[in-house]
């Protein structure tokens, strides 16, 4: 069964705290943390690109997997991003080249928030055919989030960063046991980024839909695997908003502490957030063989879903 053998991440060094952002937006810093759970976010340098951050996360992931760029090359590279600078080409081929894998097929996934989840599911399907799949999600959402006309409800949310994971066709790791994916383009205009920004988000609609669809997808997945929500050792969700994460936990009747959260440090890094969170969570020593982990995401499209992983050592 395909399994995730390592994670990686990259966060820019520059930190933008709520008090700095609040002054610019003329809002209260406490309001920002209250409506989002975010305390600070990382901001890429002006010239730093989605590909730059993807490269760093990919290199970190491969390093953690104890792979060298030449001795164990991925058979396929997937790069998810909803904020790449160019209409074409996307960052995938450039990232593959910079990692030393020129000639290896590299595919762009033009998916924002749910990009990591969709990439994991695709990677699990493709790894048996192509060999190890390096999945990277990289986002530079902070710039379009503060493009005029400024919307304070959007400007407070987004940060920059990249996450990655390596999916092997088999062997020990986090086995990708099952997944559910859904898309519904009826909501395409409710969360979108045009060619020049700003990000447009119909917040109430997005929250209402996410608060329903995420628990429903998780329930659909767990029910068909005869797994109770309480039997999941760890949930790792797209880090969109702490209040949303808490509501998903409540809907599943699972303690909120069972949902890994790092949104207070990084804000919403769109598609990168799930892999950044998983990367941090995976460093914790608490994981035991047989533990079940549930990943979930929701985002622009709308695209949403969940994946069930099992720790196998």
């Amino acid at each position: 069964m395909p399994s995730i053998v390592s994670f990686g991440r990259y966060l820019p060094a520059a930190v933008l705290r709520n008090d700095e952002l609040a002054a610019r937006l003329q809002v209260d810093a406490a309001w920002i943390s209250g409506v989002s759970g975010i305390e600070e976010r990382r901001i890429a340098l002006p010239g730093e690109t989605v590909a730059d951050m993807a490269f760093e996360a990919g290199r970190d992931c491969l390093s953690r997997a104890c792979l060298s760029h030449t001795s164990a090359k991925p058979g396929l590279i997937l790069v998810a991003s909803g904020s790449s600078e160019r209409r074409f080409p996307g960052p995938a081929a450039e990232v593959a080249h910079r990692l030393g894998f020129a000639g290896t097929p590299a595919i762009d996934l033009a998916l924002a928030s749910a990009g990591s989840l969709f990439g994991i599911v695709l990677g699990a399907q493709l790894a048996p055919q192509y060999g190890p799949v390096l999945l990277i999600a990289s986002e530079k959402m902070s710039a379009p989030a503060v493009t005029e006309p400024l919307d304070k409800n959007i400007a407070i949310l987004f940060g920059d960063g990249a996450g990655a994971c390596l999916i092997q066709p088999g062997g020990p790791g986090l086995e990708i046991a099952d997944s559910v994916l859904h898309s519904d383009g009826a909501w395409a205009n409710d969360l979108q980024l045009g060619l020049t920004g700003p990000i447009h988000m119909n917040g109430p609609t997005v929250i209402m839909q996410a608060a329903r669809k995420i628990p429903a997808a998780i329930s659909e997945l767990l029910k068909r695997n005869a797994v109770a929500p309480d039997a999941i050792a760890q949930f790792v969700m797209h880090q969109a908003n702490q209040n949303l994460i808490d509501r998903v936990a409540r809907a599943l009747q699972v303690p909120a502490a069972r949902f890994y959260s790092n949104i207070q440090k990084y804000g919403n890094t769109s598609s990168a957030s799930l892999l950044i969170a998983a990367s941090e969570w995976h460093e914790q020593p608490a994981l035991k063989a047989g533990d079940r982990i549930c990943l979930a995401a929701f985002g622009a499209g709308f695209h949403w879903g969940a994946a069930l992983l099992t720790a196998a050592f």
């Binding site: 109430p204 209402m208 949303l244 509501r247």
Partner: peptide, 24 residues
Amino acid sequence: SFALTDMVGELEREFDIAIPDSDL
């Protein structure tokens, strides 16, 4: 946004109705 989400859940429970996602 979040209070609205909570309200929808309470309406469903109070009136024993199922509000489809398309109506949200």
